[in-house]
Amino acid sequence: MVILNDRLVEKGKAQIAFNNRGTYYGDGVFETIRCYKGIAIFNESHYFRLMSSMRILRMEIPNTFTPEFFEQQILALHESSDKGSKHSRVRITVWRNEGGLYTPEDQTISYSMELRSLSGPFQKNAVNEVELFKDHLLPLGMLGTIKTTSKTINVLAGIYKTENDYDDMLLLNQNKMVAECISGNLFLRSDNIIKTPPITDGCLNGIMRGQVIAQLKRMFNYSFVEESITPFELQRADELFSTNVVQGIKSISKYRKKEYDTAAADELRTFFNEKLFD
């Protein structure tokens, strides 16, 4: 089952207009939310990012879009779906309704919600080899910080990754600084200093990024800074890891000839698994 504009619908019967603006122009935004026992984790943070993203795209936000509304919709989706797994992910997609060419005829929206099961809590990955993606550069500015449905650079990086047997790619911005991974924010550790690119470098304003930053600032064994990362720093670092709400903290094990430690990522993963899950 999926939710399409407030209604529970069988996946095979969920239909939207062929000329919807999400398909025609990538005129939409989305949120991916991790849930545990049917409850959205970091629900408030996801809600405010979604509302902020819709405002940035000048969409008309329905009066019904409240944090409580989304909690109820997510719970209804879980109750209508397979209850075998405690862990799941919900994707909320919002797109502007059809009409107009580049210029919309109105700002009203449609939305959908879909559920997928996850195998368990945040897992430690075995091998995760990365490389720089140089074919296209991420733009700087506000649009890079939100989850729009037009993620062409991430898609092309994913294809390059598959064709060249890498596990992930590091994306560069227009200043040739390392901004993020395909689907996660990047953190770099040198000795006891951990840093991540600032939002002004064009990286996603990730929910898990914010949670990890808050935790790092509480830890006495590390110092944290938001600072641009140059490609030259990668091979001098002791550790690299990426973050998102579905995978949690994902260690990067190898970049070119450099192999990395996983100490900080392991510590953070343990902390969040104990905090969020039984």
Rank of each mutant, 00 (worst) to 15 (best):
G144T: 01
I249Y: 11
I229M: 02
G99Q: 11
P104T: 05
L172H: 07
M177Y: 09
I193P: 09
G26P: 11
W95G: 01
M169K: 12
T32W: 06
Y222M: 04
D191S: 15
K258N: 12
N273E: 13
D201P: 07
R96T: 00
S81P: 04
I199H: 09
K275M: 15
D191F: 11
F224C: 10
R89D: 12
Q174S: 12
S88Q: 10
G210T: 12
V178C: 15
L132M: 00
G184Q: 11
K83L: 15
E233H: 06
K134Y: 14
Q174L: 07
Y260F: 15
S117L: 11
D106W: 12
F271D: 13
M219Q: 15
L132R: 04
G248T: 14
I74V: 04
P197V: 01
I146Q: 02
K147C: 06
R209K: 14
D261T: 15
L240W: 10
P62M: 12
E31Y: 01
R21K: 08
Y260K: 00
G100N: 05
M113E: 07
V178M: 14
M1D: 01
G158E: 08
R96M: 01
Y111R: 02
V246M: 07
I74M: 10
T270K: 13
Y260R: 04
N5I: 03
I109D: 06
S253M: 03
I92M: 02
T162A: 13
Q211W: 05
M219A: 14
L77S: 00
S117W: 03
L156Q: 10
F122Q: 12
I39W: 01
H87F: 15
F70V: 03
E10W: 07
F232Q: 12
Q107W: 09
L57V: 06
V90D: 01
K86G: 06
T64C: 09
Y111H: 00
L4T: 05
L115A: 08
T270Q: 13
N175F: 01
S228I: 04
D168T: 09
E44I: 03
E98F: 09
T108R: 13
E267W: 00
T270V: 13
G99E: 08
F220H: 10
V178T: 14
E10N: 05
E98Q: 15
G206K: 02
T93G: 04
G28S: 01
F187D: 04
K124G: 14
T64Y: 00
E31P: 07
